[in-house]
Write a protein that binds this DNA or RNA. Structure first.
Length: 415
DNA sequence: TCTGGGGTCCTAGGACCC
DNA sequence: TCTGGGGTCCTAGGACCC
């Protein structure tokens, strides 16, 4: 038996925990650079604000209905997520953290599912203050679908592939199924498969021929035949990237080089956190993708002599790449760096052709990491990252880091 | 004027091997 | 003029997820 725990309107809900006066009001949380709405309260959804709507397109609604607009505060959401996952891990032996606001649980023994779900829901609300939707199912796909049903009904829901639940599946649009995105949804509807029930009764082999093995698996999963096991141990990452849009387009090479140094610095830190090294870097810069015809992408791929997670090395290659592809005529709207071909840093690689470097660089990284972990990210950083932050992206309405910064602790007065 | 960031998996086709 | 059969590995692109 699988369960899916999904936090309702997660980012908005995190904000409300510390701003209870925002309860029952329309709120949206924006993406980085204050660009799009990426989390909406139920009240905001009712106003017709779609997921991912650019702020400039919904200004009239924001104004007319006095919508509270918040910048994203990922420090807060990340910490709230950790709290929730820790609780789930205490409550159940088998937990797969699927995303920042979702987790799959697996149970072996027979218990009263709905009662267990309601208990968990209440407990999470009491401990963290976040409303969750919980679905149970005999496969992960069914548990996911049950959580969708739970969201609309307000209480926990159970699904298996038996005819007992066909009514629910007949009312469930095919596009709501985990793994059916916009493209496949469109094709399915053209073929006359409108609901989860239609897909459940489809022929798996012909579905595979027409779509892919992924959609074939979904058919089996809807029938109650489990194809997707719980992944308890997270595989090592295969790629890591850091990319940001500028608050306004940049055509100054020095600023681009500062920005890429910052992202390289973050990237190297993440690699070290994951105990990984990279053998291949991909550095790119582009103008806005909304200028239809003339989208330009400048890029360099760098294959390193030996795998590294050293900040100075990564920044050096990243800045070289920018130096090479830079074109003063282009307005860069964002640049980014990606580490590919990642290796396990705990397995030492013997070097045949290259002399062993001294450990000085390693020591510098170690000191930087420990200071930054203790006093906050980028307390110390390489000079290459620069000081000026004018070009950095906007987060105009960011709320305090209530749970991760001593200076932002909530003050409570007792009367 | 203004439009996020970070991932995964699968497939087809090309290059190469014997 | 005619030109086999069976593999592997890598990459780019597409689709999906949150």
């Amino acid at each position: 038996m699988f369960a899916l725990i999904d936090c309702d309107n997660f980012f908005v809900s995190c904000e409300r925990v510390f701003r209870p006066e925002l309860e029952n009001k329309p709120i949206i949380v924006l993406s980085s650079n204050d660009g799009c709405a990426i989390s909406r309260s139920d009240e905001a959804k009712l106003l017709g604000i779609p997921m991912g709507a650019p702020l400039f397109e919904i200004r009239h609604l924001v104004k007319a209905y006095n919508v509270e607009v918040l910048s994203c505060n990922f420090e807060l959401y990340g910490d709230m997520s950790r709290r929730i996952m820790n609780i789930l891990q205490q409550e159940c032996e088998k937990v797969e953290v699927y995303s920042v606001d979702e987790a799959f649980l697996e149970y072996d023994d027979t218990i009263n599912w709905i009662a267990e779900g309601e208990r968990l829901k209440k407990y999470l609300m009491k401990c963290v203050g976040i409303v969750t939707s919980i679905g149970f199912g005999t496969t992960k796909t069914l548990a996911k679908l049950a959580s969708v049903q739970a969201k609309s009904s307000g209480s926990c829901c159970y699904l298996d592939g038996s005819s007992k639940y066909f009514d629910v599946l007949k009312a469930m649009p095919v596009g709501k199924i985990w793994g059916i995105g916009a493209k496949i949804n469109k094709n399915m509807r053209q073929q006359g498969n409108y609901t989860a029930y239609d897909l459940l009764t489809a022929d798996p082999k012909s579905i595979r021929k027409q779509y892919s093995i992924i959609v074939e698996r979904i058919v089996y999963e809807l029938n109650g035949r489990s194809c997707l096991p719980l992944t308890l141990i997270q595989d090592l990452k295969k790629s890591i990237q850091i990319t940001r849009s500028f608050s306004s387009p940049v055509s100054d090479k020095d600023i681009l080089k500062q920005a890429i140094a910052r992202y390289g610095f973050r990237l190297a830190y993440k690699l070290r956190e994951n105990l990984q090294k990279t053998k291949t870097l991909w550095v790119y810069g582009c103008n806005t993708k909304f200028d239809v015809a003339d989208t330009v992408l400048h890029q360099r791929t760098i294959v390193l002599d030996e795998p590294t997670n050293n900040t100075a090395t990564i920044i050096k290659y990243a800045q070289n790449a920018v130096e090479e592809f830079f074109d003063p005529k282009l307005n860069y709207s964002k640049i980014g760096i990606m580490a590919l071909d990642l290796r396990d840093a705990t397995i030492p690689q013997a070097q045949l052709m290259f002399e062993q470097k001294t450990s000085l660089k390693k020591d510098i990284d170690k000191v930087m990491d420990s200071l930054n972990k203790r006093f906050g990210l980028s307390t110390v950083r390489p000079l290459a990252c620069g000081e000026s932050v004018d070009w950095m992206n906007k987060r105009g309405n960011k709320t305090p880091e209530y749970t991760t910064n001593w200076h932002n602790l909530v003050h409570v007065k007792a009367k």
